[in-house]
Design a protein around this nucleic acid. Structure first.
Lengths: 348, 348
DNA sequence: GCCTCGATAGAAAGCGCTTTCCATCGGCGA
DNA sequence: TCGCCGATGGAAAGCGCTTTCTATCGAGGC
C-alpha cells in the first residue's frame, strides 16, 4: 500500500541498506548508485517512515520548544526565531530536517511535565524551555529530574530566559539580565526625579518576576529611596489595569509606575488614562521586553529591550548542536534600557 | 539501559501484550492485573517508546498545526486554543495524550510543504492549516496533492481560516466571513459619510487579502461610491506605515483608511499621527481581526471581530475527531463589526 | 603475478511495540 | 454433571528502518 524503503530498493535494484545510506548520507555510496536510488525515490514518491526510522536509530528529529503562552509575542518571537534556526540547520539524520514543535504549557507545571514526557516518549533530539520557571520547590525538583533523564537519554536541553537549577549541569542556558535591566530602568526614573514609584509585578512565584523586582529594589536601595507599593498579578493587560487601581489606592501620589512587562504596562496606561491622568505628565509608565507594539503605544513606551529574536535563534542553534554551548553552560543576554515617551520628569 | 515494556511485563509478571493493553486501554484487563502493571510502570519509571509504538500501530499521536507566523497574535491565539482543545481530548491511543505541535511556515509555500512532508513522515494523526493560502496555482496544486495524500494515509486534515480547494473533499474547513466582515466595515464608514476611502491591503496573492478586498469593493459598488486608492503590502506594522504614505500621495484628501488587519492599522495610525493628522478627526482608521491590543490603541480601533479562540478550539476538536465535521465539510465563522473610537464622521 | 587494502554493497539481526490468533479458566444452562 | 461461553491473558508475527558484520571487486605494491 504505502511505499516502503524496500520498494525503493527493489526499483533501484539495490539493497535496502543502500537506500538507507543514500537517504541518511553518512556512508559512502557511489555517485551512480545514489542517483539511481534518488530517482526511484522520486518516481515512487517515497516518504520515509519516521517512527520506524526513529525506532531503529534510537533518536528522532523532533525538537520540542516549550513556551508559557504562544499567543504572547514575547514567546512568539523567541519561538519563531528558534524554529527558523532549527529549520535551517542541515547536517543531522533524515537529511537534517528537524521538526521544531512548539508546545504551550500555559505556565502550568503539570502541562510542562506532560509535554516533557511526551517529548521523551518521542525520543526528541532536543528540548528548549523558554521563559522563567515557577520557584515552587516541588515543581522544580520534578522538572529538573525529568530534564536530567532527558539529557541522560541523549536529548539536548536548552534553557532560554530560564535560570538553570544548580547542579543542572547538562543544560545550556541563556539567561536574560532581568535584574540589571530592571535596575537601570528604575535608575532612569530616579534620575528624572521620581520618588514615589509603584510596581506592577508579575506572578509572585516566577523567577522572572523575582529578578526584575530585585533589580528595581536594588536601584531604590542604592539611591536611598523608599520602596513604593508593589502589586503582584499575571503577565497580562487586565492584570496591569487592575494593579493600577490597587497601586493608586495604596499611594494616590505616585508619580511613576513600573510594569512587569510591556503588556502589563498597556493595561496600566489604560487605567491611568481612564482616571484622567496624563502620561507622562501626571504619571510616568515603564514596561519591560520592548515588544513590537511598545513603540506604537501612545505615548511610546519606555522599556527595557530584550533581544528576543537573537536569543531564540541562539537557543535553536544550541539545540541543533550548531553552536557550542557557552562556557560554564550559561550565557548572559544583555538587557538595554530604551527611553521613549512614556516617562518624563514628575510634575512640579 | 532504558526501561522497555518487556521489563515492565517481567516485573508485573505478565506478558508484554498485557502491559500494552493496560497502557492503551482498549481491551479488557482485570482490575487486579491492571493495578499490578501500573505499579510496575511507576516503580520502573517507564516511558513508552513513541516511535516503536507508532511504528507498530501505524499512526502517531502527533497533531501538526501549521501557521504563517507564530509571533503574530492572530495565529498565536488560534494555535493556542487549538492546542488546548487537543490536549484535553482523551480517548485516543497512548492514553489520548496527543502532542500538538505548531509549525511556523513564515508564509512560505515551500516551508509549508516541507512541514507537511515531515508530518507525513511522522504519520501524524492530524494536520491543521491555519490562515489563508497563497493563490499561486502551482503552490495550490502541490499543497492540495500533499493534503490528499495525507488524508489517504489516514491523517485528518483541518483548514482553519483557509478556504478549501474545490475537490478537496476530505478536509474539514472553517472559513472566516472575511468578505462579509469587510463589507460591513466599509458600509459603516460610508454611513458615517466617508466618500474617499483608502485601502491598505495585505499581500496581493493571499486568499484572505482578496476576500477582504472584495467585501470592501462590494460595499462601495452597492453605494455607488468610487473606489479610493489601494496599496498591497505585507501584514505587518511597517507595511501599514509605508502604505499610508503611498495612499496619501495618491489621494491627499482621504478621510478614511481601511487596513488589512489590526496590526497594519497600527502602522497606519502611527504614520497619520506623525503627519499631524488626528484620528478620527482628520482621518478615520479601521482594522480587522480585533486582536487584543486593538482595544488599547489610542484611539481604540474600530475593527471586525473574528472569534479566533473559538475557531482554534473547534479546529482542534475537528482534528481530534471529538467534533463531527460540518455538513459539506465547511463551516462559516461569522465576522462581526466592532465600532470603537478610531472612526467618526468626516470633517465638515 | 600474487596479495593486501580501500571502496562499495548486501545480509541479517534487531529496535520496542501492537495485535491477531489461541489457550485457559470459571461459571452457568441443561 | 458435562459442554459451552465470556472474560482474560499469552505467543508470536510483524511494523519499516538502521547498522554492524561480511563479501566482493579493482587497484596498486613488491
Amino acid at each position: 500500500m504505502t511505499v516502503t524503503l524496500a520498494d525503493v530498493a527493489a526499483r533501484a535494484r539495490v539493497s535496502p541498506a543502500t537506500v538507507s545510506r543514500v537517504l541518511n548520507g553518512n556512508y559512502p555510496v557511489a555517485e551512480s548508485t545514489r542517483e539511481r536510488v534518488l530517482r526511484a525515490v522520486d518516481e515512487l514518491d517515497y516518504v520515509l517512515n519516521g517512527p520506524a526510522s526513529s525506532l531503529a536509530a534510537a533518536t528522532s528529529d523532533l525538537v520540542g520548544v516549550l513556551v508559557h503562552d504562544i499567543a504572547d509575542p514575547f514567546f512568539g518571537i523567541m519561538a519563531s526565531a528558534a524554529q527558523s534556526s532549527i529549520g535551517e540547520g542541515g547536517s543531522g539524520r533524515g537529511g537534517g530536517e528537524k521538526l521544531a514543535v512548539v508546545c504551550n504549557t500555559g505556565g502550568s507545571p503539570e502541562r510542562e511535565l506532560t509535554y516533557l514526557t511526551l517529548l521523551q516518549r518521542q525520543r526528541a533530539a532536543a528540548v528548549i524551555l523558554m521563559g522563567g520557571s515557577l520557584e515552587d520547590p516541588a515543581h522544580l525538583a520534578a522538572t529538573t529530574g525529568k530534564l536530567a533523564k532527558l539529557a541522560e537519554a541523549g536529548t539536548r536541553v536548552v534553557l532560554c530566559g530560564r535560570p538553570p537549577v544548580t547542579g543542572d549541569a547538562n543544560a545550556a542556558a541563556l539567561v536574560f539580565d532581568n535584574r540589571g535591566g530592571a535596575r537601570r530602568l528604575t535608575e532612569h526614573l530616579l534620575e528624572l526625579g521620581h520618588r514615589r514609584i509603584g510596581y506592577a509585578a508579575g506572578p509572585a512565584d516566577r523567577t522572572t518576576t523575582r529578578h526584575r523586582l530585585e533589580g528595581h529594589r536594588a536601584a531604590l536601595t542604592a539611591a536611598g529611596v523608599a520602596e513604593g507599593p508593589t502589586v503582584h498579578s499575571p503577565y497580562d493587560r487586565q492584570a496591569g489595569y487592575r494593579a493600577t487601581a490597587e497601586l493608586l489606592a495604596r499611594d494616590p501620589d505616585l508619580t511613576a509606575v513600573v510594569a512587569a512587562n510591556d503588556t502589563v504596562a498597556l493595561g496600566v496606561c489604560a487605567a491611568l488614562r481612564e482616571r484622567g491622568l496624563s502620561i507622562p505628565g501626571d504619571v510616568s509608565v515603564a514596561g519591560f521586553d520592548d515588544l513590537p507594539f511598545s513603540v506604537d503605544a501612545v505615548p511610546s513606551l519606555t522599556t527595557v529591550h530584550l533581544p528576543l529574536h537573537e536569543a531564540g535563534t541562539r537557543a535553536g542553534r544550541l539545540a541543533m548542536g550548531t553552536e557550542d554551548p557557552p562556557a560554564g553552560g550559561l550565557a548572559r543576554v544583555p538587557a538595554e534600557l530604551v527611553v521613549r515617551g512614556s516617562t518624563g520628569r514628575p510634575r512640579e
